[in-house]
Write a protein that binds this DNA or RNA. Structure first.
Lengths: 117, 117
DNA sequence: GGAAAGTACTTAGTATCGCTATGTACTGCC
DNA sequence: GGCAGTACATAGCGATACTAAGTACTTTCC
């Protein structure tokens, strides 16, 4: 049987909701022209955030599928030099628009939180 | 039947997870000595964030109950001049410690997100 | 040629939390 | 007596991140 997680442990999971989707959009946005595939995205996310926003595959791929379904990302396949076929994602016009808007909202939220302190 | 919410609408709900719990701790922390009751907290949260982090009662009270159950808040009752008995919440020692830690984590997350852009 | 490690993606099942909706109840004012 | 404002409680629902397990391709090394 598993120990009940502490409040802080649960919070650290909950706070990632929405944040991770945003982070994925942010990374894809960094690769506007070429796009980026899932496995590489996971590595970059992990490195760029020093593990703070690192994700397992079981978390990342469903996010990519959702964003694609919402037409925020386009996907194409690409041969890999060292493994199975990759799926390369790029932002759509909508994706870019939404990314900008979420950036703005997130900024406001953090401002308000700081004002609350 | 109800229209399927857009990606952004869902995101705006999801992003509040964890954030709201933190905001509640922050408000209670502002009233270290006297404490604050739920109804007043809701008003203050709404005002201080210009409605951005406003909550309905059905959202706020479960949060307060959770924080109490986790022993981050203590509660006492108090007579109101204009309504039923109030429940006044104050931070516990643990609550204060956790609040500080969450503040630090949130700061890191936001820093990383900015670095991602 | 086969095992192992690294690359790459998929999906089923679970828990949690914020939201909607609804209900209860007390006070003061007209 | 009814209404508005104050004050709290809770059941049911939907969305998402996590765990866990599986599939499959390439290169390296013995």
């Amino acid at each position: 049987m598993k120990k009940t997680p502490s409040f802080e442990d649960s919070w650290k999971v909950e706070i990632r909701r929405g944040i991770l989707q945003y982070a994925v959009l942010a990374i894809v946005s960094r690769h506007k022209e070429e796009g980026i595939h899932g496995y590489g995205l996971a590595r970059e996310l992990d490195e760029k955030t020093d593990g703070l926003l690192g994700v397992k595959e079981g978390t990342l791929y469903p996010i990519l599928h959702r964003l694609r379904k919402e037409r925020l990302l386009n996907v194409r396949t690409e041969k890999s030099e060292a493994g199975p076929v990759r799926k390369v994602y790029v932002l759509t016009g909508d994706g870019d628009r939404v990314y900008r808007e979420l950036t703005s909202i997130l900024g406001s939220i953090f401002d308000k939180l700081e004002a609350l302190r």
